[in-house]
């Protein structure tokens, strides 16, 4: 059994890569993908802790996270398609209607 820190470190690294994706990429699709990556890294951490603690609760949590991620992607992509139909682009920098 490998030390837990290996997995957590990998999870953290993936998470930060996802964060960078959200912050740096300008296509909404890419932002979505990065968010999925972040969710996955969190899932990885949860599964690691489930294994470390020998408790299934964290795995159940992952199950729910995946469920919610699926719902989020479905709705998010639907919204994205609507936006694209209107603006002909998915560039997130063009969606600045809500500024002060």
């Amino acid at each position: 059994m490998l030390p837990t820190i290996f997995y957590i470190g990998l999870s953290a690294l993936l998470f930060v890569i996802g964060v960078c994706g959200v912050l740096l990429r300008r296509s909404t699709l890419m932002v979505f993908m990065s968010i999925e990556l972040m969710l996955n890294s969190a899932n990885l951490a949860l599964v690691t802790f489930a294994n470390q603690r020998q408790s299934l609760d964290a795995q159940i949590m992952v199950f729910f996270v995946i469920t919610i991620a699926a719902a989020e992607v479905a709705v998010g992509l639907a919204l994205l398609v609507m936006i694209f139909m209107r603006k002909q682009t998915t560039n997130i920098d063009t969606m600045t209607t809500l500024k002060g």
Partner: peptide
């Protein structure tokens, strides 16, 4: 694959079915 290493075979399958089979395809 890491899930498999971490004794989560069920999540391994779910990960493949949902993420690989549905979400990425949707993307």
């Amino acid at each position: 694959v890491l899930y498999l290493l971490l004794q989560a075979p069920f999540l391994f399958a779910v990960q493949l079915i949902v993420y690989a089979g549905a979400i990425i395809v949707l993307f």
